[in-house]
């Protein structure tokens, strides 16, 4: 592997990691603040990608499609919280898992009814459809750079929003003591609804911006959900910083696992077993630091 290829793969790994961060941060927000484990989170990623496909087809414009898609996803989040999630706050994890598992089946079947079971793809918008020439025959696509950039911007906004705004203060208050926050006159139910909708939009937005560089297929929700879980377990639940570090780690390991070749005693470790590399990392973390890299002792 020469230096330029190494550079390109590192960039790809970081870009994948940042995308994972967007998905995983929604998951970790919803758990950290509301105490709800939402295994339907991957479905929202999948819905986002399919939404992007139809909206961009109808509206004929990537940016407009993106905007409408986010609004639709946010509304979907509000409705879902009102219909199902708000009943789960004082229930045990088992019921949360089951309700959201039921939602997975419903969404996956609705997807099949609405969009069918075909694999689709979305075109890269003209504005970003170029690449930066690195050497004579190696180039890096502008779209991936933009994707990484937007993820970083959102991460910073999220951090600032939680640490330095009034809403962020309410969120943090609700996280540490729900009853007390309520007693202070804050409508915590509304704050939770907003958080859930925000998590849904984050997942859907990730699906939308990932659509042009990866194909849109029925199983994409389950795949991203599992990887997000790995990210959250490695990073520590409820920790945004942990999610960021773990997501980058997972992104890089997964990317390099797929492009490297490694052969030990005649057994091909990479790329054949690349799918397992991140799980192995998770197992190691569990062994030495079961609460995750940035998780609190429990």
């Amino acid at each position: 592997m020469d230096a330029v290829t190494f550079f390109i793969q590192t960039m790809n790994g970081i870009q994948y990691g940042l995308l994972l961060f967007l998905v995983a941060s929604g998951l970790t927000l919803i758990f950290g603040i509301m105490g709800v484990i939402n295994i339907a989170h991957g479905s929202f990623y999948m819905i986002g990608a399919y939404l992007a496909w139809s909206l961009m087809g109808w509206l004929g414009n990537f940016w407009l499609g993106l905007f409408v898609g986010i609004v639709v996803a946010f509304l979907l989040g509000l409705i879902l919280e009102w219909l199902f999630i708000r009943f789960l706050y004082d229930r045990d994890h088992l019921q949360q898992v089951l309700v959201t598992y039921g939602l997975i089946l419903i969404f996956s079947e609705l997807r099949s009814v609405i969009w069918g079971d075909d694999v689709h793809s979305v075109a890269i918008p003209a504005l970003l459809d170029g690449s930066i020439q690195l050497t004579d025959n190696l180039a890096y696509p502008v779209y991936r750079l933009w994707l990484s950039g937007i993820c970083v911007v959102i991460a910073i906004l999220m951090f600032l929003g939680i640490q330095h705004t009034r809403l962020g203060m309410m969120i943090r208050a609700g996280e540490s003591d729900r009853e007390m926050t309520k007693a202070l006159g804050i409508n915590i139910g509304l704050v939770y609804r907003f958080i859930f909708a925000l998590g849904v939009s984050l997942a859907a937005f990730s699906g939308m911006i990932a659509a042009p560089i990866s194909s849109i297929f029925p199983g994409m929700g389950g795949q991203i959900l599992i990887v997000s879980f790995v990210v959250v377990v490695i990073g520590g639940l409820g920790s945004i910083k942990g999610a960021m570090v773990a997501a980058l780690l997972v992104g890089l390991i997964d990317t390099f696992g797929k492009v490297m070749t490694l052969n030990i005693f005649g057994v091909n470790i990479f790329p054949e077993m690349a799918g397992m590399s991140i799980f192995t990392l998770m197992a190691v973390i569990l062994l030495f630091r079961p609460q995750g890299i940035f998780g609190k002792e429990y």
Binding site: F84, V99, G102, L105, I106, L110
Partner: peptide, 8 residues
């Protein structure tokens, strides 16, 4: 779809 509904 129906199974999911029953589960929920």
């Amino acid at each position: 779809l129906l199974t999911g509904g029953v589960i929920v």
